[in-house]
Amino acid sequence: MFDGYTTSELMSIFAMQGFAGLSLFSVFVLMALGLAIIFGQMGVINMAHGEFMILGAYTTYLTSSAFQSYLPGLFGGYFFVAMLFAFLVCAALGAFVEWAMVRHLYRRPLDTLLATWGLSLILQQAYRTIFGAREVGVTLPDWMMGSIQVTDMVDLPINGLFVMIIALSIAIAVYFLMYRSGWGKKVRAVVQNRPMAEAVGINSAGVDRATFALGCGIAGIAGAAFTMIGSTGPSSGQAYIVDTFLVVVFGGAQSLIGTIVSAFGISQAQSTLEFFLSGSMAKVLTLLVVVGILMLRPEGLMALKIRR
């Protein structure tokens, strides 16, 4: 499939597609981080995760409209406010969902999967009712338009770069929260030995709720970032859900680095293949390879060999 391209053309193609892949990588990382935190903590997959992301996107859309109407002078900075709102709205809904639904199902991870799927159906339809079936997009502030030209053939769009920076900052923040803070220590204590953690006075129910809310909040930030590179519709979240699950599982549960590495690998593979094959075949091939590898190595890329 490389026939008919010169080496320098190929290099540029890889660079451009590589960068396009990095935008996808950013979305994957942001979505997968939230999912991985919840999965790692409770062993449940939140099927409504994509809908939490879309909630963040709609929050961003509303914030941008509000800034446009009432605070046009501050429009350049609306995104940071929107990101905060998106986080808070999604975290609040996440905490509510944990309280109303998920906490009753901790011993039944498969049932949680089904219940959160039900939630995702309800949320999608609610978006459709409130915002309409059409996709909405936000107006980007001026400073995010345009691109940086690296070479004659390689252009890097600023919004894509910006989203990537957000993704990496959040990843680093999560790392510090989980592995360098007192709260993270509690979370890990509960994961490893719930009865013992409770015995030493950790409020495990509180930890669960906070973790779930945090995961959902990060999905909200993912949604905010998502508006910078694409438009939002009621079912946009579902388009990413299978990929993100695979990212998390492929990376190895409870491994933050694994999640990031697998998000990188999957997004790069997909975007590079897309140039040479049709979009759908690129996706099929990528997913097949991932599923194939998971069948051979079910513990994922970075799983610890633990004593069971």
Binding site: P109, L110, V284, L287, V291, P298
Partner: peptide, 22 residues
Amino acid sequence: RRVGGVYFAIITQAIAAILTIL
């Protein structure tokens, strides 16, 4: 390889996605 539970569910779902796209 003793894959079960949530992992199995996710992988079968991915297979459904793959076949549909294909």
